[in-house]
Amino acid sequence: MGDSSQKQLLEFTTVTYLDPEKSKFSRTPGGFLSLVTEDGREYPRVNLHRAFPFTQTNEFISVRDPEGNEIGIIRSLYDFPREVIKLLEEEMNRRYFAPVITKIYSLKEEFGYTYWDVQTDAGHCRFTARSGSSSFIFITDVRILVVDVDGNRFEIPDFRELDEKSRKKLEILL
């Protein structure tokens, strides 16, 4: 094998983790996230992608440039200084928008759709989802993700924690 191909292979198999001490994240005036890496490369704008959005929300976060090339991976959010954690969390909350359902006012199933009227942490919401397991996903035994017809996501972190009335309404889908 030639030198160049060996280098290529190496590139494919190594995971670059960002150094929590030396990677400098900051907020741009326009509200985006920028990064200067330890070797001094500057990225005026970066996007964060969770590798395991359901199971490991704060670990293995891929940092990518706007073209989608991976700059590096954040192994764990908690290795970073507190103010950076806040910055990164804000950024991820923007990319991953999934209001948490706190109360179900009404839930009906008819004509192959489920009609929801709920209170979420983002406000009062009405939405429609397709019936069936593709829109009503059990992430764990108790955690539920509801995806509506437009692709909006709503989360129920633990359906047992909902109030009695809401849980009763949810029963038709359980």
């Binding site: 923007r94 990319r95 991953y96 928008f97 999934a98 909006n152 996501r153």
Partner: peptide, 8 residues
């Protein structure tokens, strides 16, 4: 993005 979008 995931569950929402922005106009930039």
């Amino acid at each position: 993005m995931v569950g929402n979008g922005i106009l930039e």
